[in-house]
Amino acid sequence: MLDPKKLLKERDGYVEWITRFLDSHRAGTIDELRVCFDLNLQHRRSIDGWIKIALMKKVKSLELDFEPCRSNHGRDSGNYRFGCKFFSLSGIRLLTGLCLKHVDVRGQILESFLSNCPLLETLHVSHSKQLTHINVCGSSLRLKHLHISFCKCIKSIEVYAPNLVSFAYRGLECVHIDLKYVPQLCDVSYAGQWKSRWVFELRKSIHRCLATSQLVNLLLRVPFLPFVDISPIQPDFPNLRYLTLELPNVRLSFRETVEFAKLCHLMKHMPLLHKFKLELEAVEPHIPIEEKYIKSIIKMGREVRVTPLNKKLMMLREVEIVGFVGAVADSILICFLSLVAPNLNKIVINCCPPHWHRGAPIDDRKMKELEEGKSLVCDIMSAIRPEGSKYVLL
């Protein structure tokens, strides 16, 4: 635990160091200014001065990351507020990248920023307490990358950006997302933690995110059932090559076995799918799969081998399953994918928890589950692994 007095001393020293460095900087330009420290509204005068110097020196990329240290989640002052005071500086028109983390900024300021920065290509805003709505619109926008994450008051995001290549949203809120015109969009990340009362709005938001045929890379962190339930109204994904699903709080029961089968059916509408990654978080106690289920899985796998070629995933080369626990549902998924993809050359099975639980302590019971899961994978893969494929067990 960091002593508050020591933190205050560290802050003052850091602020003084940055100010001294910028004051002594003699070059006419600065390509990038990146400030990362636990600073807040109390330091607004110093931060304002840094930004003004950077803009006068024609900075291209500006990042302000004021994430609180772990021992100081309850800040002694609010977030620094990014305002319109910088729009009068001519250097702002040369900015190509803006990243604001734990900085409060309103949607109107961001919209004015876009209109004043004709060269801006990257906009990343996270943990802003003032951002409620953002309207990114303009036929002349050069914006290529838009990332909005963990802004707890955000209600809607509207985008009309002809050059946008990647869009990412992460948060705990139910957000109305309207991608009105994004003809170049090929990378979408949509992740969050939602409650059942938000499911209907989630369906509409996800559909708006995915209703574009040029997607190449897609990451979704969603409740499993809402994602599968909207699949009948989804278009095909003719260019999708990389699919990542993060499924928190999954109960790997027989019902989920059926839902995994629906997922596999949906994947058949992705003819160019090259890599599939699934991260699971099973919330029920581990129950080792019975031997009869292992035999039925292998039997089903052998039947899948005769599936017509036009119904197989011919381009799938790599499969990675993280959080495997050896239930019927995840075991059948491995079996199915191993056999419906004749050109699969790498299978990675990771029995460790998903990335959002990395670093958590593992007790004896969990260690036993991991070992049982690994043993089960070996039994299944020895019987169904495609010839010539590489198999990695972690």
Rank of each mutant, 00 (worst) to 15 (best):
residue 3 D to H: 06
residue 9 K to G: 14
residue 11 R to W: 00
residue 12 D to G: 11
residue 16 E to Y: 13
residue 26 R to E: 11
residue 27 A to E: 14
residue 29 T to K: 15
residue 30 I to W: 06
residue 32 E to C: 13
residue 32 E to L: 12
residue 33 L to I: 12
residue 41 L to V: 13
residue 45 R to S: 14
residue 48 D to E: 05
residue 50 W to G: 00
residue 56 M to E: 10
residue 57 K to S: 04
residue 61 S to W: 08
residue 63 E to T: 09
residue 63 E to A: 09
residue 65 D to K: 00
residue 65 D to Q: 09
residue 66 F to V: 07
residue 71 S to W: 11
residue 71 S to Y: 07
residue 72 N to W: 14
residue 75 R to W: 12
residue 76 D to F: 12
residue 77 S to A: 08
residue 78 G to V: 05
residue 78 G to E: 11
residue 79 N to D: 03
residue 82 F to E: 02
residue 82 F to C: 02
residue 83 G to W: 03
residue 87 F to H: 04
residue 93 R to F: 14
residue 94 L to W: 14
residue 95 L to K: 09
residue 98 L to V: 06
residue 101 K to Y: 11
residue 102 H to I: 13
residue 103 V to N: 00
residue 109 I to S: 10
residue 111 E to R: 03
residue 112 S to L: 02
residue 121 E to N: 04
residue 121 E to S: 08
residue 145 H to P: 05
residue 145 H to F: 05
residue 151 C to Q: 04
residue 152 K to P: 13
residue 154 I to H: 00
residue 157 I to E: 00
residue 161 A to T: 08
residue 166 S to K: 00
residue 167 F to Y: 02
residue 168 A to G: 10
residue 172 L to W: 14
residue 176 H to R: 13
residue 176 H to L: 12
residue 178 D to P: 08
residue 179 L to H: 08
residue 185 L to R: 03
residue 188 V to D: 01
residue 189 S to Q: 12
residue 190 Y to I: 02
residue 192 G to M: 02
residue 195 K to I: 07
residue 195 K to V: 07
residue 203 R to G: 10
residue 208 R to M: 02
residue 210 L to G: 04
residue 212 T to R: 07
residue 213 S to F: 11
residue 218 L to Y: 01
residue 228 V to M: 02
residue 245 L to S: 06
residue 247 L to F: 14
residue 253 S to T: 15
residue 254 F to H: 15
residue 259 E to H: 12
residue 260 F to H: 00
residue 262 K to I: 10
residue 263 L to F: 07
residue 265 H to K: 15
residue 265 H to A: 15
residue 266 L to I: 13
residue 268 K to F: 11
residue 269 H to K: 15
residue 270 M to P: 00
residue 271 P to K: 08
residue 275 K to V: 10
residue 278 L to M: 07
residue 281 E to V: 05
residue 284 E to H: 09
residue 289 I to Q: 12
residue 291 E to H: 13
residue 294 I to W: 04
residue 296 S to H: 03
residue 299 K to P: 05
residue 299 K to N: 14
residue 300 M to D: 15
residue 301 G to K: 08
residue 301 G to H: 10
residue 303 E to F: 12
residue 304 V to M: 12
residue 305 R to C: 12
residue 314 M to W: 10
residue 317 R to P: 02
residue 318 E to V: 09
residue 319 V to Y: 05
residue 329 A to E: 04
residue 332 I to A: 03
residue 337 L to I: 03
residue 337 L to Y: 02
residue 338 S to W: 01
residue 341 A to P: 00
residue 343 N to C: 05
residue 344 L to Q: 04
residue 354 P to K: 06
residue 358 R to P: 06
residue 361 P to M: 06
residue 369 E to V: 04
residue 370 L to T: 11
residue 371 E to R: 07
residue 377 V to W: 02
residue 381 M to G: 01
residue 384 I to V: 10
residue 385 R to A: 13
residue 386 P to H: 10
residue 386 P to M: 08
residue 391 Y to G: 03
residue 393 L to V: 09
